[in-house]
Structures are given as C-alpha cells and as structure tokens.
Computed example of a mutant assay.
Amino acid sequence: MEKPNFPRPELSVIICTYNRADLLDKTLVSLLSLHELHRAEIIVVDNRSSDHTAEVVRRFIAAHGEFVNATYHFEAEQGLSAARNAGIRLAAADIIAFLDDDAIPAPSWIRTIISAFGRNPDMSAMGGPIAPIFESERPAWLTGPLELPYTIVNLGTEEREYPRSLNPFGANMAMRRQALEENLFPLHLGRKGNLLLSGEESWVFQQIRGKGGLVKYHPDMAVDHFVPAARLTKEWIMNRYYCQGMSHAVQCTSLKERVMLMGKTAAKLLYITVSSLKARSEGSKMLIRCRLESIRGTMDTIRNRKSQSAAG
C-alpha cells in the first residue's frame, strides 16, 4: 500500500529496537493514545533484529498507516548509536525525540515536547520523568543512586534546568535537529547487541552544553519504562557498572585524558573505600560493589589497550 502524503511533521519520534518485538508492539499501540499524534512522524529503526520485529512494525503500519505517519528502517550496522544516527538522517522535523522500544509515553507527551520547544527558543534539549514498570518484585537493594542505571528519574513537578551532573535519558529525550546534526552519536560508544557500553548520550549532551545549549526537564514529558526480571539481579547491575567503567576508558583517546582518568579513578577508589566503612543498608553495600566493578571495567580496558599497543 502506498504511503499517504502526510504534511511535514513538527516532531520526529525515533524508536530504536533490537530483538524486543513483543515489547515494541506494546509501545507502538500506546502511541495511538497520544494527543496530537498527527503532528509527529514515527520512525522505527530495526538494528539487525533476528526476531519478528519487522513483522510487528509492518502490521502496525498496515493497520494504522492511513492515519499515523510511521516508517520502518532496517539498520545493518550493529549498535544503538548507529541506529540513532540512521533515525536522525531520516527525520523530517526540526525537533527529534527518542523513545525506547519498551516505554509507554503519557498522552500529553507529543504536545508537551512541541509546546516546550516553542516557548523556549534558547532550549537545545529536554527530558522528563521516567517511572519503572517492574516485571517482577523490586529488589530491596534497588535504592538511591542505583535507580539511575535503571533509568528511574523524577526531578519533581516543576519545569527546571537539568543539574550539570545529570542528562535526559535515551528512553525519553528530545533535541533540536541542529544540535544533533552537529553532534551525531559516537559509534564507539553505546550498546552493541548485548554489550552494555554506554556514554554516547553523555557525550552528546557534553557537546551541546559546551556550546551554551540549554537542557531542561519538564514534568509532563513523562514515560513509563519496562524493567524486565532479567535485569533485576545483582549480576546484571554489576555488569552494567563494569561496562560503564569500560565506557569511561574508551572515551579517553589522548594521553592527557588517560592520565586524568587514572587520577579520577584513584580518587574514586579512595572515596569508595571510606564509604564502605559506613555502609549499613543492603542498597549502600550493593552500590559499593557496583562502583568497584566500574573501576575494574576501567582498569581492564586500559590494560587491554596497553597490551594491544605493545603487540603492535
């Protein structure tokens, strides 16, 4: 069936997906409840899925394509950054939003994003609250700082600028096209298949803020985000921190950056050692273990680089 001739969208919504067809199906169906969906286009980027992802998207387009401006794109280069960049190149709107393939946006999500950018011409990017949908019982240790790796975010009920130590998460973020075209996601960072590398979003926001861009939080730009039982284990979160440590090392390409990273890592180890003496709760003890895993990931990556350099 030939695609209808939709007007130019005000918002491009990019959903990158990898082997989560059934969750993606729920996310796509949830879009039908969004207010002012006609103002947006939906771009699903399939990052080499081997399940029935393509069938799910094509079935959705066949059922709703007359009224929903939706596009399917297969991205052969493995990696979340590559998938996001492919979506950016396909996007037609001046505002680009990213939604996870397992996230359910609030009905006012589209309207909130378009309105906020319209009222804030100096704003480069925005994000909002992300509430968890746990597949199984929430572990007792999942508290405080450990919420962030699970993208659990709530900065309150008022619009505000993001603190410098925090950025919007990929499950729920939007940027002006110009900011993204100047700073595409780095291909050496971000998830690749089942490898939990990260840091690509932080890198982009670092570039945006370095050029004076304003990054804001809006309480009505809200999504619910699925957390599978497989991730609610100590093994998963420790591996997540290990990969985060790897990401820190991968980002350091010059000798100066590596020396600075070593200094920060040494200071972090001292802080963790002192903190461990005061850790009493299950959550605080788990956080100590995770932070040590992050350091191990950093050091292993640095050692592997040295071995590769020595080998020629």
Rank of each mutant, 00 (worst) to 15 (best):
I110S: 06
A97F: 02
N120S: 15
P139A: 07
G79C: 07
D100A: 05
E75H: 11
D94L: 05
S108D: 13
I130C: 14
F134N: 02
G87Q: 04
F117L: 14
I104Y: 08
E137D: 15
P107F: 10
L90K: 12
D100Y: 00
E77A: 14
I114G: 04
A76D: 14
I133V: 10
A106V: 14
T143G: 12
W109N: 13
R89L: 14
S115M: 02
R89K: 15
I133L: 13
R119M: 05
S81G: 08
G79D: 00
A125D: 03
D100N: 03
R138N: 03
G128W: 03
G128M: 05
I96P: 02
E137Y: 13
A92Y: 03
A86H: 05
L142E: 06
I114H: 01
T112F: 00
A93I: 06
R84W: 07
E77P: 03
M123A: 10
D101W: 01
A106E: 15
P132T: 01
A82D: 00
L99T: 01
A92C: 13
S124I: 06
P129N: 11
W109D: 14
W141S: 02
D122T: 11
G87W: 07
E135A: 11
N85F: 10
P145F: 13
S81T: 02
P105Y: 09
T143W: 09
W109C: 13
I130T: 15
R119D: 07
D122P: 05
I130V: 15
G128D: 07
A93M: 05
G87F: 10
F117M: 08
F134R: 01
F98N: 04
N120M: 10
I130F: 01
R119K: 12
L80T: 01
E77L: 15
A91C: 10
P129D: 08
L90I: 15
L142C: 07
P129F: 08
I130A: 12
S136K: 10
A86L: 08
L142H: 08
E75D: 10
S108P: 01
M123E: 05
N85T: 06
A86K: 05
I104W: 12
N120G: 02
A140R: 13
I113T: 04
P132M: 03
I88C: 11
T112R: 06
N85V: 05
G127V: 04
G79E: 02
T143F: 08
E77M: 14
I114M: 02
E135H: 06
I114S: 01
A92M: 12
A131L: 11
I88Y: 12
G144P: 03
P129H: 09
